[in-house]
């Protein structure tokens, strides 16, 4: 039971990390809590599902979903967020919630109120580790999760974009004065952040075999708890926090039962840790340094 809880917790943590990574990168560079990112997740799930139904190719579904969400993210930063930067944190937060509410209704009106199945079979075997079972979908989530996390780490530490992200996230004005094209950096981060949301959406859809208009509700709250717990704008902190929440949730259920709603568990963990460490698990804007 320990082993299977551990595996379940890590898989759940990987999903949480994928969901929270995009908003973390965006927070790092713009200092806004981008709830609309979760609308990108649902958009990705629906797009992926429709493409999968047409082509029966999971790869095509993922790619088109990423493109669709990335385009959505680009438009959001260009026409919504950038014009209202410097208005304090609450205005973009509420504007993002406006997008989130409106998009849920768009999904309902376009795709109908009923949940849709995502009947993709993953070309991966079910693996038995000790007494525990890892399903093909769980394996896919782990592989994609690790690939994305390593890719993100590499991009931030070793590429020019990563350097620019770090420079901009530490001090937008100075970076801009030193000739960094902050507009381009912001746009790129949104493209990446929303493509990640699409991946999360497709994986959620396949894992739970369901896609529905309000599928973003729970990820939205969870994502907020995780990025704050991780230290706000710190990708490594986010991954740690995601794993922590995933494991705590799984172990609490396995050993104590459903003692409290999962959302309450996540936020109680958050509040307790913040009272001890008001800056989150890891201080912001540092990635593995």
């Amino acid at each position: 039971m320990v082993l299977s809880s551990l595996i379940n917790g890590i898989v759940l943590g990987s999903l949480y990390a994928l969901i929270a990574l995009g908003p973390t990168l965006i927070y790092g560079i713009l200092r806004i809590l981008d709830i609309a990112n979760v609308a990108g997740l649902t958009l990705g799930a629906y797009t992926g599902l429709k493409v999968f139904e047409a082509t029966h190719s999971l790869l095509a579904a993922l790619v088109v979903a990423m493109l669709a969400s990335a385009a959505f993210g680009y438009l959001l930063q260009r026409f919504l967020y950038r014009p209202i930067l410097g208005r304090g944190p609450l205005i973009p937060l509420i504007a993002g919630i406006g997008v989130f509410i409106a998009m849920e209704e768009v999904f309902r009106l376009v795709f109908g109120p009923y949940p849709l199945d995502f009947p993709a079979t993953v070309p991966l075997p079910t693996v038995h580790v000790g007494g525990a079972v890892v399903t093909g979908v769980q394996l896919l989530i782990l592989i994609v999760g690790i690939a994305v996390l390593v890719g993100t780490w590499y991009s931030l530490r070793r590429t020019r974009l990563g350097l620019l992200w770090r420079a901009t996230s530490q001090d937008t004005e100075t970076a801009s004065a030193m000739g960094v094209n902050t507009g381009l950096v912001i746009a790129t981060i949104f493209l990446i952040g929303y493509a990640l949301a699409a991946i999360s959406g497709v994986l959620l859809g396949i894992n739970y075999n369901t896609v529905y208009p309000t599928m973003g509700d729970i990820p939205a709250y969870k994502m907020l708890a995780i990025i704050v717990l991780g230290g706000l704008g710190n990708p490594l902190g986010t991954i740690l926090a995601a794993m922590l929440i995933g494991l705590v949730e799984t172990f609490v259920v396995a050993y104590l039962g459903f003692v409290l709603p999962r959302d309450a568990i996540a936020f109680i963990v958050l509040i307790v840790i913040l009272l001890v460490r008001p800056q989150g698990l890891l201080p912001g804007e540092s990635f593995g340094s």
């Binding site: 299977s4 379940n8 739970y208 259920v253 396995a254 459903f258 959302d263």
Partner: peptide
Amino acid sequence: VATDYSQFGEKDFAPILSRDKS
């Protein structure tokens, strides 16, 4: 042997089922 309450949107019942089995 056990009564547990889950929330709307619960996705993973494996832990609670294993616990009940044990």
